[in-house]
Design a protein around this nucleic acid. Structure first.
Length: 255
DNA sequence: ACCCAGGCCATCT
DNA sequence: AGATGGCCTGGG
């Protein structure tokens, strides 16, 4: 068991924020948190967290997963106080963090996310992973699945994208993406069936931690048109724009 | 009933 | 290059 204080970390906010779809809320407000084929249970009381794992595992895996080396308070502090909307958004979601998730897991889950909603994505991911005994299906396992079997899970037309991604990443190791720049990774991801500009940006932000990736979905598009008609000031927020996007997305989602 | 949800792709002009 | 419609499914 590891007990630790963490600032700017609210498990419920992260759970709701639509960046991870395999977390499960437990009784007493704890969470079961899968990451690749690892898993931990965490309980939060204010700023104090209990991880039911060894100190060694915490340092090897979970400290990095929760991006504990990044000061989110400093990012919030960068927000222009004259920007009322953004100031309110970061205040509202002050417990959000961008998790450092496994890129292949993120590819699968964000392929399923398109034209969908959070409860349905969770169900699709759970049902898909159940086919491989709760583990993350490997590219070759996905490649070998039939479109019919996948459609039976209710993933609809995304079934062929999953198979296509399995094929694509059987030849092309997902881990290679970690060595690339944001632009390179985005360009490469777009070559995979079912990955367009928006999903590629989500994978860059949530799977590769390229914090300048700025995914524009229907919510963000709406926010930009009403609050930033001239576009979001990406240059001003270089190095954290994607993180600010997450605060705006969450604020809009909960309103 | 109808529309939309964290879009992508094929098929046009 | 840019615009349009189709696509699976579930919930409001």
């Amino acid at each position: 068991m590891v007990t630790i204080d963490i600032k700017n970390c609210n498990l419920t906010q992260i759970y709701e924020s639509g960046q991870c779809f395999r977390w499960e809320m437990l009784a007493q407000g704890g969470f079961r948190i899968p990451h690749g084929n690892h898993e931990v249970q965490v309980i939060q009381k204010d700023h104090t967290f209990q991880f039911n794992c060894s100190q060694q595992e915490f340092e090897d895996i979970w400290s990095d997963y929760f991006d504990l080396s990044t000061d989110y308070g400093a990012i919030i502090g960068r927000v222009d106080s004259k920007d009322r909307y953004l100031t309110e958004a970061v205040r509202y979601g002050e417990g959000l963090r961008i998790l450092r998730q496994d890129v292949w897991e993120i590819i699968i889950t964000f392929l399923l996310s398109q034209n969908s909603n959070i409860p349905r994505i969770r169900k699709n991911v759970r049902d898909l992973f159940a086919l491989t005994d709760g583990r993350v299906p490997t590219p070759s396992q996905l490649k070998a699945m039939s479109e019919e079997d996948l459609r039976a899970l209710g993933v609809g037309y995304r079934a062929k994208y999953l198979i296509g991604a399995g094929k694509f990443f059987s030849d092309y190791q997902p881990e290679q993406l970690y060595t690339m720049s944001y632009e390179q990774a985005h360009q490469t991801l777009m070559k995979c069936p079912g990955i367009g500009p928006k999903v590629a940006d989500c994978i860059c932000l949530f799977g590769l931690h390229h914090v300048d990736a700025f995914p524009i979905d229907t919510h963000i598009r709406q926010i930009l048109s009403s609050h930033y008609p001239k576009g979001f000031p990406l240059e001003q927020y270089r190095g954290c724009a994607g993180i600010l996007q997450q605060y705006m997305f969450y604020y809009d989602l909960k309103k």
